[in-house]
Every structure is written in C-alpha cells, then in structure tokens.
C-alpha cells in the first residue's frame, strides 16, 4: 500500500513490555481528512498505540509514518506535537491551577522556546483565536475560572479545546465521553464531527452509542492487533468481535 496519501501509516508495529506484547504486528492506515473510531476491550493496546504515535513509547519493530513521509519513531513527544499531532488523554489532563483562558493560551500554536514565552504579550489575533475556541467548547462564561473548578465533562471539552488551539493535522482523542451525561455525549459527537471536517481524527471509545453517532469507519483492536475493520454494523456483526467482547 502506498503511504503517499495517508496521514498516519503503521505497518507491522510491535512493542512489548517485560515480555508482554502490548502491540503485536499492528498495521493501521488513516487517510488524510479521515475520522476513525477505534474500539476494543481493555488491554487491546489502544492507548499503547497512541503512545507509539505520539513518541512516548518506541516500537520494537515496524514502521510508523506521519503525513506520508515523516518517520515518527525518530522523534520525541515535543517534536511530534509540533509537527501537528495532538493528543487528548484518557483521564482529562488540563492545567488545573490555571484559568480556562490560560490553558488555551499555553496550547495556542506558536513558538515553543523559553525566551519568547518570557517576553510574550497576547496579541489581538491570539485573543480572537481564544475567543473562537471558547465559543466552540462553550466555556466562554467560565474563561476566568480555574480549570480545577470544571466538571469532568467540561475538563474533557477544555482538553479538546486545547487540541484545537494547537491546530494539529491529526487529533488522537482517547475516550472523550467517559464520565459524560447523554446530552454531553451527543454534543461531543457533534463537536468531533465538526472538527473532522478539516482535521484527521482517531477516536478511541468504549461507548458504542457514541461510536454509532460518529458514523465513521471502525477498527476493532484485540491483543495488540487489528481484529476487524469496517462500518460499525460490519464490525459488530463479526463473530470474532462478539466473542472478544462477550468472552468465550
């Protein structure tokens, strides 16, 4: 398969921790502009896969390419983030002692070295970008509040907002609706679909209702490799998937 038109290309990737193969000969291709949902039982290797893509974990073998030509295994987290891969953690991770606005300000795309940050003053363009994002994630009225005071769901949204501020090409979103109400879950699906219009997105989620809402191609991981891939109906009709989820 050609890498040229892909945003993310994983081929034959394996990684083991203390003899346990967390990822086992995993191959996964994401086209530019595509949104993909990844499902799989606990321990299927979903988060480890994200660790590999974002440079946190080095694979033992296999190829990981971003945007068709960048070998991600040669770069670290900060470099990969600067290339345009944003990541939302499973547990919402925001800067709790900062205001919502400052959280976004630290995430805004721009120079990432110390001295510019030391003498940085917020420009009108940056203020506008922050306003836009606050509108999208609907936290405009809480902009001066500490992130620690947000509800779990609002923290998830703030973290997604921080990803948007980063303006990445590819977003990796780990369990965005964990701990959300049904209404919030629907809102999040709408938000992610909006984002997917001009970004490539990978969403890892357990909530099948939410995955159905997204209406995108689904990849089911099991024991570190792809078990089944296709529409949600196709995947959920796959006997092996049913077996994995319901136990044998």
């Amino acid at each position: 398969m050609s890498k040229s038109n892909t945003i993310l290309y994983l081929d034959g990737v394996s990684v083991s921790f203390d003899g346990f193969r967390a990822i086992n000969n995993l191959s996964l291709v994401l086209d530019k502009g595509e949104m993909r949902a990844i499902i799989g039982p606990n321990g299927a290797g979903k988060t480890t896969m994200m660790d590999i893509v974002t440079g946190k974990t080095r694979p033992d073998e296999g190829e990981v390419f971003f945007d068709g030509q960048v070998d991600l295994t040669r770069h670290d987290e900060a470099e990969i983030a600067m290339m345009g891969i944003g990541r939302k953690f499973q547990k919402p991770t925001v800067f709790e002692s900062h205001t919502i606005e400052d959280n976004l300000m630290l995430a805004l795309k721009g120079p990432r070295s110390i001295f510019p940050a030391l003498f940085h003053r917020r420009s009108a363009a940056e203020a506008r970008q922050i306003d836009d994002i606050l509108g999208i994630i609907r936290l405009g009225d809480k902009r001066h509040e500490q992130a620690a005071n947000l509800s779990h769901g609002q923290k998830q949204w703030l973290e997604i907002g921080m990803l948007l501020a980063q303006d990445p090409k590819l977003l990796l979103v780990d369990e965005p609706v964990a701990g959300m109400t049904d209404a919030e879950t629907e809102e999040t699906a709408r938000l992610l679909k909006d984002i997917a219009r001009d970004h490539s997105v990978i969403v890892v989620e357990h909530d099948m209702h939410f995955v159905r809402e997204l209406g995108v191609k689904v990849t089911c991981l099991h024991e570190g490799s792809v078990l089944s891939e296709g529409t949600l109906d196709f995947v959920s009709a796959d006997e092996r998937v049913v077996e994995v989820y319901l136990g044998r």
Binding site: E77, A81, G86, T93, V94, E96, S97, H98, L106, M162
Partner: peptide, 17 residues
C-alpha cells in the same frame, strides 16, 4: 504559567509541544 503547568501536568506540556 508554563512553569506551573509543568509542575501540575508535565506530560500535557510535552504533548502540546
């Protein structure tokens, strides 16, 4: 602010670049 961000959630700052 970045300094405090590193104190509170170091890996988040890394993944922001």
């Amino acid at each position: 602010k970045l300094l405090m961000a590193v104190r509170d959630a170091e890996s988040r700052t890394r993944f922001l670049g």
